[in-house]
C-alpha cells in the first residue's frame, strides 16, 4: 500500500470515528417518554444560546419492538419560563414556517412526521426565542411528550 493510500485510509478512519461519535456518543441532558406512542423516548441532547436564540436538539428513540409513527406539530412546541410564568413558541421564518426540522411537510407551519423503525432513532431541532427575563432554567414542552423540566440555560 502506497503512503498516499495509507493517508486516505487514515482520513476515512478518522471521519468514520467522528461520525460514530456523533451518533453513539451523544450527551443526553434529560430524557422523557412519549405519552401516547409506546416505546418512544425523547432525549434532549443539546441546548445552545446564540444571539438570544435558544436552539434545542432532541433524539427520538424507538425502544419498542415495532416501527412507530411519530408526529410532532412544531406549532405545539414551546418553552416555558417557570419563574415569570411566560411561554414562548418556536420562531417562524418570513414564510410562516417554523425554524425547525426535519419537517416532513409544511402543514401548520411544519411538522415532524416520520416512522421510526424499532431500535432506530431520529433527530429533531427547534429554535426558540431566549426568554426575555433571562431565567436560570426553562421547561421544554413537545406535544405528547412529558415536559422537560428545570432545564438549565447557560449564561
Amino acid at each position: 500500500m502506497s503512503p498516499r493510500s495509507k493517508k486516505i485510509l487514515a482520513f476515512l478512519g478518522t471521519g468514520l470515528l467522528f461520525s460514530a461519535g456523533l451518533f453513539f456518543g451523544q450527551e443526553v441532558i434529560q430524557t422523557q417518554s412519549h405519552n401516547t406512542v409506546e416505546g418512544i423516548e425523547a432525549d434532549l441532547t443539546s441546548l445552545e444560546i446564540q444571539n438570544n436564540i435558544v436552539t434545542v436538539k432532541f433524539k427520538l428513540r424507538n425502544t419498542a419492538a415495532e416501527k412507530q409513527n411519530v408526529t410532532i406539530q412544531f406549532k405545539d412546541c414551546y418553552i416555558m419560563d417557570e419563574v415569570n410564568q411566560k411561554k414562548y413558541y418556536g420562531l417562524k421564518d418570513t414564510d410562516g414556517l417554523f425554524i425547525a426540522g426535519p419537517a416532513y411537510d409544511d402543514q401548520n407551519g411544519g411538522r415532524f412526521w416520520y416512522g421510526i423503525q424499532a431500535g432506530k432513532s431520529m433527530g429533531l431541532w427547534i429554535k426558540f426565542p431566549q426568554p426575555a427575563d433571562n431565567p436560570a432554567s426553562i421547561t421544554i414542552s413537545l406535544p405528547g411528550v412529558s415536559p422537560f423540566e428545570s432545564v438549565k440555560l447557560a449564561k
Partner: peptide
C-alpha cells in the same frame, strides 16, 4: 412515505446554515 425516512440515519441532523439568520430576523 414517512415510513421510508426511518431507514435513514438522521439522529443528529445538521441545522441548515441559514436557520440562525432566519431566527435572528424572526426574533
Amino acid at each position: 412515505d414517512p415510513a421510508l425516512q426511518s431507514g435513514k440515519n438522521a439522529e443528529d441532523p445538521v441545522i441548515p446554515a441559514d436557520a440562525q439568520e432566519k431566527a435572528i430576523l424572526a426574533l
